[in-house]
Design a binder for these strands. Structure first.
Length: 963
RNA sequence: GCGGAGGUCGCGUAGCCUGGUCAAUCGCGCGAGGCUUAGGACCUCGUCCCGAAGGGGUUCGUGGGUUCAAAUCCCACCCUCCGCACCA
């Protein structure tokens, strides 16, 4: 019959339509039911939603569906993220004709050429993806209340009013301050350059460089270094003879630095007046004096000096800096250069490294040692990089200054460094500034540097009171998996003030600062509250102009009198009360699930902002995070082609198969791995489950209600309990696996075990199973539910009751399973495929009696055991008793609690009775005649003959005679 | 460097907190048999090594230790992955 064919696309569309029509997921406040509000961090609309998003989303969807079935009134809304520079960035790149961007859009996202042309308009781009993604998400089938959908930024005036209100509140309550803030800066774009805006230099951020001054004819040659403490080992100063340098007045003092340095100094709050420019070679050969130590050293030429890095001036410590050492050696050998700059070769060759630090590992001249060890030939050898870092690490952590370091002698390097820095600052012999340790190039091709932004509006994350409140919120929250809690503590403590205004990209204007928008991470922190409002903005009952500060104050915080607020906002007082009621009903968020990447930023902000704005009872209740999806073992990477969109996956595998493929692949913080082959297999698995359940529904066996039905019912209860527990603990993979495979295996065993299945017991089990399957594979489960002749929706049907499990029937089956396994093992050892006769001989009654008593005592005590045995063994031969004693002691030693339970119950029920009852099963299983006996029923001599040297029967371990 | 996760029988994983029926879960793959006109699906068994009786041997990143007993507890080491900021 074509009925049994599983066509996922048909089934999925069918039920999505039904859910839509019946408004199953449209949630309204209902005081008679507890609420459960789940949220997902809205995805960014700069591209298609991918499987990684789907994974995180699915975990949440499962909880939403499960909670609904448990009687909760579940709200699961959705929105789309437009704020920030990613969308405008793509548009910019297309406008510039960036090939790579266009290629990715065309090949990976499947955007038609003519659409790409229109992507020059960022709004068009955002709308395009929002449409596409909404469609893909709907085809995937989520338990979402779509009436509340919105997107962010000023392009959505309703949402913007909300963000503005949020910032007015933050400012009013003192969470906003003004200050300075360093950023990686592109001088051409006049904006900060985040990682994703960079052509090269990802992950590079400002580090402190120290400036060390050398007196030169009424001016200062200013060198930059990470290691100011090494000034005691200086032998010379390097400049690049071909670079351009400048003399300039810096905060009133004359400095000589590379011309590139001037902009950097100016951008770090220094007043810069350029006096003149000149070539670096003019400096060569001059003598300079270290202000800090008074060392007089020559200025020498070096090609490795990069005028764009630091100040373009480097002081040379050949003993402790392999680069300096090598450059000096090169120079000593290079007659031509010496001649060119008129340097005295003898004088240069007499320069010796000055040791000023020692370590156990490298001694006091590590440069020389490492250059020799690594076989470094000249100053352009890339291995110098490695040598430098080896020396730096070792000396910084384990080095001690030598006696030539004045007041800083005999100190650990770390300590000396700290003191030298302090002293230089005090005396003006040195200074410091921020610099990028390696080059960063903006997408526009310009080299970036550090700029300190002044008069920045900052969120005061450094404020101890705010941190304390956030930590308190965290304490009351449930966090899954639990390891992540520590991360939150770390990040809450670690955060410093955060600059939240921007001048580029999409977003909401800062209410008090025209021309500036609220940065993306900062505007998306408490927006879950807006879902209550957005429903009415979408249906036209509220207009953006109604959404004033007073409006939100009343609806979200309960401040003000409805009638007065109504007058000011134009919203009827009754409606305001209704809104207030709705907010109060739904808030706070009960569960927010996201990828682990958001812990460090968004989720921490989420906590911070909630505690700042809302009273304690509205603080978030639970956060759960999961790993990052990999594709065929590789991290997702669009430009490398490692990327699967949700749309493609759903088209190819359907929603249900996609769901379980994602869910079964990881737990906790592990990174799930998507394997397409597995997804295909999972379609087969679903087809198989579909067919299996249909066949079970078709069974027409008599109603019996014997042991096996009892067993089946209790197995079902166990599965219900397991799935429920796993779901409550956000162990979604465990839950999925248990729901998919657990009951399937139970039903298989049941069918194997009985001659004719009990149709009623089967039907009960199938019903429970479908309920358990629903959260994970909703469409398939719903389809089968209707095939069962049910009139209601499975989505609305209550979750099975988590009932007390009666272990007894389960114990009996465990005993039998063990017996079957033993039989198979013997067959294997005998290399036999089949058998003619199977005889099961259970232990003699006296053994059973003795054993019962021994297990009761629950301890391994040879004396006591022997005593008990002797009591029961009247008339038993000494040898037989001894042998049995050995067996008993051995099995007692390794007996687990479960095994004890099994034995106890088997003995209680009578082992032979159990076997008698299971005899037809054994006959069916092994296709042979089966006989069940007790040792008591076989004459002693006969028994010896039958058993041979095999160990005698033990309670729970009958002799198996195979012929 | 700082912080976090992890290394289990071909692959992906469970077990580890609370040590003992743990040669170790489940799924995939693979092999055998059954079913079937055939294929697929489905069902059963097997899948570290040895074994003519349910047993024995060697395993859970490496090396030590604690214990009657260790995948599980302790110590050291090796390796892999992730995050480290103004940016989604």
């Amino acid at each position: 019959m074509e009925e049994s064919e599983y066509s996922f696309s048909e089934i999925e569309k069918k039920w999505q339509k039904v859910y839509d029509k019946e408004k199953v997921f449209e949630a309204e406040p209902d005081p008679s039911r507890p609420k459960f509000f789940v949220t997902f961090p809205f995805p960014y609309m700069s591209g298609p939603v991918h499987l990684g998003t789907a994974y995180t989303l699915t975990r949440l969807d499962i909880v939403a569906r499960y909670k609904r079935k448990r009687g909760f009134n579940v709200l699961f809304p959705f929105a789309f993220h437009w704020t920030g520079t990613t969308i405008t960035g793509i548009s910019d790149r297309i406008r510039r004709g960036d090939e790579k961007t266009i290629e990715i859009l065309e090949k990976m996202d499947g955007v038609p050429r003519e659409e790409i042309e229109r992507f020059k308009d960022p709004v068009y781009l955002a709308k395009y993806y929002t449409e596409k993604n909404r469609a893909a998400l709907k085809d995937y089938g989520l338990a979402v209340d779509w009436r509340r959908e919105f997107h962010t930024s000023s392009l959505n005036p309703g949402f913007s009013t909300f963000v503005q209100w949020q910032y007015l509140k933050l400012k009013e309550k003192g969470y906003v301050t003004k200050g300075v803030h360093p950023v990686v800066w592109c001088p051409r774009d006049k904006s900060s350059t985040g990682d994703h805006d960079r052509l090269s230099g990802e992950g590079v951020f400002p580090e402190k460089f120290y400036l060390v001054k050398f007196r030169l004819e009424g001016s200062h040659l200013v060198a930059a270094t990470f290691r100011p403490e090494t000034i005691f080992g200086v032998t010379n100063v390097w400049v690049n003879p071909n670079a351009v340098y400048a003399e300039a007045e810096i905060n009133g003092e004359k400095w000589i630095v590379s011309v590139e340095t001037l902009d950097k100094l100016a951008d770090q709050m220094r007043i810069v007046h350029k006096i003149r420019e000149f070539k670096g070679k003019e400096l060569i050969g001059k003598m300079v004096e270290a202000v800090f130590t008074g060392h007089r050293v020559p200025v020498l030429p070096a090609s490795f000096v990069d005028p764009s890095l630091g100040t373009g001036v480097v002081y040379s410590v050949p003993a402790h800096a392999p680069y300096d050492y090598m450059a000096l050696e090169d120079l000593k050998r290079n007659e031509a250069v010496l001649k060119e700059y008129g340097l005295d070769p003898d004088e240069i060759r007499s320069i010796k490294p000055i040791s000023m630090i020692t370590t156990e590992k490298y001694g006091s001249n590590p440069s020389e040692k490492l250059v020799a060890e690594l076989g470094i030939k000249n100053q352009s050898d890339p291995k110098l990089e490695e040598a430098t870092s080896l020396v730096y690490k070792e000396e910084f952590h384990k080095g001690v200054t030598l006696s030539n370091c004045g007041r800083f002698s005999g100190l650990p390097v770390q300590k000396a460094k700290e003191l030298v820095i302090g002293e230089m600052r005090k005396t003006g012999a040195g200074d410091q500034f921020l610099e990028l340790p390696s080059p960063v190039v903006c997408r526009c091709g310009t080299r970036c540097h550090v700029k300190i932004l002044e008069d920045q509006y900052l969120l005061r994350y450094s404020w101890p009171e705010w941190k304390a409140k956030a930590l308190r919120a965290l304490e009351r929250m449930s966090i899954y998996p639990k390891e992540v809690r520590e991360n939150f503590v770390y990040f809450i403590n670690w955060y410093d003030d955060w600059a939240f205004t921007r001048t580029s990209g999409l977003g909401t204007p800062v209410p008090w600062l025209p021309g500036h928008i609220v940065e993306t991470l900062s505007d998306s922190t408490v927006y879950m509250a807006y879902y209550i409002v957005s429903k009415y903005v979408n249906n036209g009952m509220l207009k953006p102009e109604n959404l004033t500060e007073e409006f939100y104050d009343y609806v979200l915080l309960g401040i003000g009198v409805p009638e007065e607020v109504g007058n000011k906002t134009g919203v009827p007082a009754d409606f305001l009360k209704r809104l207030r009621y709705e907010f109060d009903y739904w808030y706070p968020v009960d569960l927010r699930n996201s990828g682990k990447d958001l812990v460090a930023n968004h989720l921490t902000f989420y906590i911070f902002h909630h505690v700042a704005i809302f009273p304690e009872e509205k603080w978030p209740r639970q956060i759960s995070v999961n790993g990052f999806l990999r594709i065929e073992g590789q991290p997702m990477h669009k430009s490398k082609g490692i990327f699967i969109s949700l749309k493609d996956a759903v088209e190819k595998y359907g929603s249900d198969a996609t769901r379980i493929t994602l869910l079964l692949s990881a737990e906790g913080l592990e990174d799930p791995n998507w394997e397409s082959e597995k997804a295909s297999k999972n379609i087969e698995l679903l087809r198989s489950i579909y067919g299996f359940i249909l066949s079970l529904i078709g069974e027409k066996g008599p109603v019996r209600n014997s042991h096996m039905e009892d067993w089946l019912r209790n197995s079902v209860r166990t599965r219900v309990k397991n799935v429920t527990d796993a779901l409550e603990n956000m162990q979604i993979r465990e839950a999925t696996s248990e729901a998919l495979y657990g009951l399937r295996n139970d039903l298989r065993w049941y069918l194997r075990r009985v001659k004719e299945p009990d149709s009623e017991a089967l039907r009960e089990a199938v019903e429970a199973w479908l309920n358990l399957l629903y959260p994970f594979i909703p469409h398939l489960a719903e389809e089968l539910w209707s095939k069962l002749g049910k009139k209601n929706l499975l989505a609305n049907h209550p979750w099975p009751i988590v009932a007390e499990v009666d272990e007894k029937p389960l114990l009996v089956e465990k005993y039998l399973e063990q017996l079957v396994e033993d039989t198979y093992q013997i067959l294997k050892a005998l290399k036999k495929a089949s058998l003619n006769r199977l005889r099961l001989i259970t232990a003699a009654q006296w053994k059973n009696n003795a054993f019962k008593e021994i297990i009761e005592t629950a301890e391994i005590n040879p004396e006591k055991t022997r005593g008990i045995l002797a009591q029961h063994a009247a008339g038993v031969g000494k040898e037989e008793l001894g042998r049995f004693m050995g067996q008993v002691m051995k099995s007692l030693q390794t007996m687990t609690e479960e095994h004890r339970k099994i034995l106890k119950y088997v003995l209680e029920k009578g082992e032979k009775n159990i076997l008698k009852e299971a005899q037809p099963f054994f006959e069916k299983e092994f296709k042979c005649s089966v006989e069940t006996l007790s040792e008591d029923e076989v004459p002693r001599e006969k028994l010896g003959e039958l058993v041979g040297k095999k160990p005698p029967a033990q309670p729970g371990r009958p002799i198996l005679l195979i012929e």
